[in-house]
């Protein structure tokens, strides 16, 4: 029955529980913690505009990327997760692309390339957020 559900695109109950735990549990909390640190560093670097503060913000961005990658791997490893699992993994990949784009803007400043990449980031984030919220609510 569970295998049939997964084949049809919906996650099995066990996979749903596992996905939900990953998103709201330890993996998700680590992402939360790293993003919060990142926010603080970004806001501080914006205010001071000191290269050292910008370097700290970049370091926090790298940490956030690492925790996103770890969560993405765990989500991808959930068996029989169906479309929910795939969508969650795709959302994490979009978040990662957005992190890279923001990092590029911090590194190279407002060059046309960095600006064009960063300009696409909000759409990536919006789509990833919408997908993840939908998946999370479907899992409930």
């Amino acid at each position: 029955m569970e295998v049939a559900e997964a084949a049809a695109g919906s996650a099995t109950p066990r996979a749903r529980r596992r996905l939900r735990r990953l998103l709201a549990g330890t993996g998700g909390r680590r992402v939360q913690r790293d993003l919060t640190a990142c926010n603080r560093a970004l806001a501080h670097a914006y205010d001071t505009d000191e290269p050292a503060d910008r370097a700290v913000a970049l370091e926090r961005l790298a940490q956030a990327r690492a925790s996103h990658a770890a969560l993405r791997r765990k989500l991808a490893a959930v068996p029989d997760a169906g479309a929910s699992g795939r969508d969650a993994v795709a959302a994490m990949e979009r978040f990662d692309l957005a992190l890279v784009a923001f990092a590029q803007l911090l590194i190279s400043g407002p060059t046309p390339e960095a600006l064009a990449a960063a300009d696409r980031a909000p759409d990536l984030v919006a789509r990833a957020t919408a997908d993840l919220v939908r998946v999370y609510e479907e899992l409930a």
Partner: peptide
């Protein structure tokens, strides 16, 4: 879930 932090992060970025 962490989309709240993402929203805050994106706003800061």
């Amino acid at each position: 879930i962490f989309v709240l932090q993402w929203c805050a992060f994106e706003t800061a970025a």
